[in-house]
Write a protein that binds this DNA or RNA. Structure first.
Lengths: 109, 109
DNA sequence: TTTATATATGAACGATTGTTCATGTGTTCA
DNA sequence: TGAACACATGAACAATCGTTCATATATAAA
């Protein structure tokens, strides 16, 4: 590395996680990085909702919601169950709530 | 949705956080949603580094690193201190490490 | 089957993003 | 001063993204 005075004794050279893992991590956070998806996740924070309910609640088109739900589903952030013609979506697990909560904590500093 | 009574006997979890807050949250996660920035954050996980060291370590141009450090700085994810001609960057606080860690946990499910 | 309803999806378009290249700013030392 | 070094920044371009629109699929009821 470059030559410059290092004041504290520097610990062992740290290694980064594998590149592939870092790409996956960025991909995951990118999913959280859109306000429509964030709104959908918060709408599902404490209950399950069907597609049209989400669209009505957030004043979005059915198509836009459906497209974004697919993204959320692919990232395993939401799960769904079909009941007749209706499909209900819910947060996949508490992990999702934790990530949202951590982000909120950072904003409130 | 439901109208809330004057004295709610139960918590009202169905309410979404204010729109502005949700936009800020999405903006925050968007910063984590790029592999270059994720790599920089991990490079700084346990030490401070100057710009050129980051560029060398991650095989990136000085300009690209500098641009991304500005994004990270604007989001309060990194802090910096100047020492002569050199500028050292470090993670701003443990919060950043927590968010990274939460994301990794989700991937490892 | 036919019709109605709920959801999913493909194409396309405008908007945003991350990089490179060139240059500007700030600091040190001769 | 002036040269050299470390870093920051503006413009521009390709690539990616989220929406709309049109249409497809799936289920239920008639």
């Amino acid at each position: 590395m470059a030559e410059h005075p290092t004041f504290p004794a520097e610990p062992v050279p740290e290694e980064l996680p594998a590149d592939e893992l870092l790409y996956e991590l960025a991909d995951l956070f990118r999913v959280f990085g859109d306000s429509t998806r964030i709104k959908i996740l918060y709408a599902l924070h404490d209950r399950e909702l069907c597609v049209q309910d989400i669209a009505n609640l957030l004043a979005l088109s059915q198509s836009a919601v459906s497209h974004q739900l697919r993204v959320l589903k692919d990232s395993k952030l939401v799960r769904f169950r079909r009941e007749g013609k209706t499909v209900f979506y819910a947060l996949d697990d508490d992990h999702v709530r934790s990530i949202l909560s951590m982000g909120m904590d950072h904003l409130e500093e």
